[in-house]
């Protein structure tokens, strides 16, 4: 530990000059830029779900609020929460379950804007529980089967368990293994698992193989809030005004994105390498301007049921 810090220290002192000379990433604090706008870094994942923030940036919604936005991509949430807590990023994108579990462990964070939601139609959502074997026709049939989940003890396996339970099955008989979204199709193709739970753009490409959908986030609860943008308690205390302006810009971006699906499909091709035709075929998530208290409470109760939370999350406090 100390050695780590020592080496860290070594690294910093040795690099202080060099890296700042490279100059690309050094001005990370939320200090006012020359134009008076607050420089803000947001940690996001390069997926369809974050299209509104890219769109809002392109539309100038953030500039209007005097927020100079830069978006930083990471593969998964592993680094985003610590980065926001430590102030490396001012805001981050995370699924709501991670935020609730974090709150229960006293991680100093708070959600400040909606991220994305499931659609209202369980059969046509941006997420899907897919099977290859034609003998499996409903969630209950997953008893004794292995299902791929992007992370364990999180939103995907909790949702699948809920679907199995609602279908009259015993969720404890379903086995989950952790496989990242991009690798799931390969696992099902090779019959290493019997079901996968994917989101767009993997959903469209997997369905094209003729795999059948037997569930989705929307089947858990229509318009289920899946993710949120969050910040640290520290930033909230120090720059409440900045947080308010970010939330306002985010709200405008979400509303705009929801009303302009074609522009969402277009902007997705700019920050990912998804092809235009694939983007056109995707089912987009719903982008509600506000957080969905009802579905958050639903999810929180499911987490209590699965033993991931000891008591229901204080959703009113965590999600404004």
């Amino acid at each position: 530990m100390l050695r780590t810090r020592f080496i860290a220290l070594l690294a910093v002192t040795a690099l202080a000059a060099t890296t700042s000379a490279c100059g690309s990433d050094d001005s990370s604090d939320a200090a006012p830029a020359t134009g008076g706008a607050d420089k803000v870094k947001v940690g996001v994942i390069p997926i369809v779900d974050v299209a509104p923030i890219y769109l809002g940036k392109a539309k100038g919604f953030f500039t209007k609020q005097n927020v100079d936005l830069s978006l930083e991509q990471a593969q998964g949430g592993a680094a985003i929460v610590p980065a926001v807590v430590s102030g490396q990023y001012q805001f981050g994108f995370s699924n709501v379950v991670s935020l609730m579990i974090g709150q229960s462990k006293n991680v100093p964070i708070k959600a400040v804007a909606n991220g994305n939601n499931a659609t209202a139609d369980a059969a046509k959502d941006f997420s899907g529980l897919l099977v290859k074997d034609s003998a499996i026709t409903r969630p209950k049939d997953l008893e004794g089967k292995t299902v791929a989940s992007n992370t364990l003890k999180n939103i995907v396996d909790t949702s699948v368990k809920d679907l199995v339970r609602k279908d009259g099955g015993d969720p404890s008989k379903v086995k989950f293994v952790e496989i990242a979204f991009p690798d799931m199709a390969a696992a099902l193709d090779a019959n290493r698992v019997q079901a996968i739970f994917v989101v767009e753009p993997f959903l469209t490409s997997a369905k094209a193989k003729g795999w059948k959908q037997i569930g989705s986030f929307a089947a858990v609860s229509p318009s289920l809030q899946v993710a949120a943008y969050f910040t640290s308690q520290q930033l909230l205390g120090e720059k409440a005004d900045l947080v308010k302006r970010f939330s306002a810009a985010m709200k405008e971006s979400l509303a705009y994105a929801d009303a302009h699906p074609d522009e969402v499909r277009q902007i997705v091709t700019t920050y990912t390498t998804i092809k235009a035709e694939a983007a056109a075929a995707m089912t987009l998530p719903k982008f509600a301007p506000d957080m969905d208290k009802t579905s958050l409470d639903t999810m929180s109760n499911l987490l209590v049921q699965e033993g991931l939370l000891a008591a229901p999350a204080d959703t009113a406090k965590l999600f404004q």
Partner: peptide
Amino acid sequence: LLGATNGLGYTVVQFQRGFEI
């Protein structure tokens, strides 16, 4: 980290994700 359901490394990473620092 891949397809695991038990193990020392799995446990450590699960603690990290569950904010059990």
